[in-house]
Design a protein around this nucleic acid. Structure first.
Lengths: 131, 131
DNA sequence: GAAGGTTCCTTGCATTGCAAGGTACCATTT
DNA sequence: AAATGGTACCTTGCAATGCAAGGAACCTTC
């Protein structure tokens, strides 16, 4: 994954982790692998993240022996985690659509109920004298 | 805007600023106002950001007198800025669609050409003993 | 001249993703 | 049995960066 995605990844990680766990319980190394493929998350990121989420009551943990290494620490979404997922998913969707709206070039940004401040600046003829 | 969006805002700001400037040149205070409405960006954020972008050759600046305050420092996308916008827009779209894919619950995540590692973990019967 | 909006700016704080490094378990190879 | 390499856990330090809070200057209105 190109390194210039770095800037986008911030903060959505928790949401992605919750999404992964909503499908099935999983353990750190595997979550990291999945999210490394999907959005380029590094492994070093997952453990602090998971600890934070556990501290916040989003996930609970249990151990399961691994056939190929140290015991796996599985994470499971709590009820709080599930409701947090719902909330954050909504927040993400609204955020993403706001960004998409910004991204589309036309100026049809006056959907029904717009605030109608005197927000039209009309840069008319700005004299340039930049370097 | 709810404070729990904070986590999503990171890093996309530059893209949003470029999108705003692609429509029309603008000045810090106004960009901040627009993005404050759209995605909840704080004013204190814009000035370091703009300086960074100028240093990186993404924008150039020129001053225009204001009828209602100190002179406005207008920002204009450079050619580099325009191509950067294109690139980052693409990156954003692919990132956003990756997150959306994660977010949709079904497990149809094996599109043509999947890597086919032994990636199927099947949590089968994990014995829970969490606290 | 006080108040308040506009417009620029800075400093300090806190969050947090990442790279790099470390430990340990297990199986296979030499 | 030593070495290798994959799995799986973890930590430390760095760097980026969004924000709140504060400040200064310009302007208009009361």
């Amino acid at each position: 994954m190109e390194p210039n995605l770095v800037q986008f990844k911030k903060g959505v990680l928790e949401l992605c982790v919750m999404a992964v766990l909503a499908r099935a319980d999983s353990y750190g190394y595997d979550i990291a692998s999945q999210l490394s493929e999907a959005i380029g998350m590094g492994e070093g990121t997952i453990y602090p993240l998971m600890r934070r989420m556990q501290k916040d009551g989003i996930v609970s943990t249990y151990f399961v022996e691994s056939p190929s290494g140290p015991p796996r620490k599985y994470y499971s979404l709590t009820d709080l985690g599930r409701s947090s997922l719902t909330a954050q998913r909504t927040a993400w969707e609204s955020f993403a659509s706001a960004v998409s709206a910004l991204l589309r070039p036309a100026s049809d940004d006056a959907p029904p109920g717009a605030s109608s401040d005197q927000k039209t600046i009309t840069v008319s003829k700005a004299v340039r004298n930049d370097a």
